[in-house]
Simulated assay, not measured.
Amino acid sequence: MVPLLIPFTPKSGAKESLATGDSVVMAAASSELSPMDKALTWEIDNFSERKGVMTSDPFSSGGCKWCVMFFPKGHDGNHDLSMFLHDANWKSLSPGWKRRAHFRLYLLNQSGKHLYRSPGQNICSLFCAEDPGWGFRTNLTLAKLQEQGFLEKNKLIIQVYIKVVEVVHQGKSTANEMLDFNGFQIIASQSASVNKIFKEHPGFANAVIPKNRGAYTNLLLGLVNTLSKSPQMLSMTELSNAQSELTELSAAGFKLDWLKSKLEEVSLERERALSDGSRVQQLEERVNNVELALSDLKVELEKQKIKFAAAAAIFSSFEFIDSLIKRFFISCFSISKH
């Protein structure tokens, strides 16, 4: 498996100082016959005893200061030896700083045997505020080195070759700067999300040669973004387009079983949501109908109250007149007796 280029941001406080016996040789610029200049040779003694992250002393190349961070016990949950190159002064640099450089990292034993050589001689990496460091996992562990007899005299040597092609000390934001990420052409602000894809699904692009990956960058990121939305927010058109995009990417050689499963999951959740929503809508319609009928009954009740009040008033008037008539006749009867 081809080692993947990994973005790296150094963390303060995670440094093991160079112990006695470690030596660092800063190399002057070599002849122009070499595409990259050897910038550092770092000899690490007592390697098997190293536990935490190790950081080289700063070294110069291309007018910039660099550092190498080495993880003898692995990095980010992985146990493979890992090496990263980063700008030594990245925290104190001015806004908009960037460096573009070709680089290679080598791991050798005491005899000078190459145990690991990073790929990417033709890749120009962008170092900036969003991605101050880049590096690789070596697919080697301390146990593997010892089992295969590669670790001689308990010493390892790291060599760094760099060719700086652009240096900007201050400028506009680099968030939209284009960079090559294992064949994908992305902007700097997307490196974290793309790195997450490679970390969680490391073999998804193995069948697609790096130079052909760039054409599918936007398609892949767009599909991942679509399927990260809430199912209720997705339309049938978006799901149909997602299926077409998934088919196109799979035909190109990408192994996207995880996205296929995600699409099926999202589609099913959407159907359930629509079904639940339809039931809710039906209940709401029934409630509205009941409320409307109740409103009509209230109106009819008020009408009946008014009619009853009017009728009662008329009946009361008749009673009053009848009472007057009775009183009149009683009075007349009383007068006639006298």
Score class of each variant (00 low, 15 high):
3 P>M: 02
6 I>H: 05
9 T>S: 07
12 S>E: 11
15 K>Y: 15
20 T>H: 11
27 A>R: 14
31 S>W: 09
31 S>E: 04
37 D>R: 12
39 A>F: 06
40 L>W: 01
41 T>D: 02
44 I>D: 09
45 D>A: 14
48 S>G: 11
48 S>F: 06
51 K>H: 13
52 G>T: 05
54 M>N: 10
55 T>E: 13
60 S>Y: 08
65 K>W: 15
65 K>N: 15
77 G>A: 03
83 M>T: 03
93 L>V: 03
98 K>P: 06
102 H>S: 14
108 L>W: 04
108 L>P: 00
110 Q>P: 05
112 G>V: 02
113 K>E: 10
114 H>Q: 10
125 S>G: 07
130 E>A: 12
130 E>T: 03
132 P>R: 02
136 F>E: 03
152 E>G: 10
155 K>D: 04
156 L>M: 13
157 I>S: 00
161 Y>E: 08
162 I>E: 00
162 I>G: 03
167 V>D: 09
171 G>F: 08
188 A>F: 02
190 Q>V: 01
193 S>G: 12
202 P>C: 01
215 A>M: 07
215 A>I: 07
220 L>K: 00
222 G>D: 01
223 L>M: 05
224 V>W: 13
225 N>K: 09
227 L>S: 00
227 L>E: 00
230 S>I: 07
231 P>L: 02
232 Q>T: 12
234 L>C: 07
234 L>D: 04
234 L>W: 06
236 M>D: 06
241 N>A: 12
250 S>T: 14
252 A>D: 00
255 K>D: 13
264 E>C: 10
267 S>W: 01
272 R>F: 12
275 S>I: 15
288 N>M: 08
291 E>P: 06
294 L>I: 14
296 D>S: 13
309 A>I: 10
320 F>C: 10
320 F>E: 03
322 D>F: 11
323 S>V: 11
327 R>D: 15
334 S>Q: 15
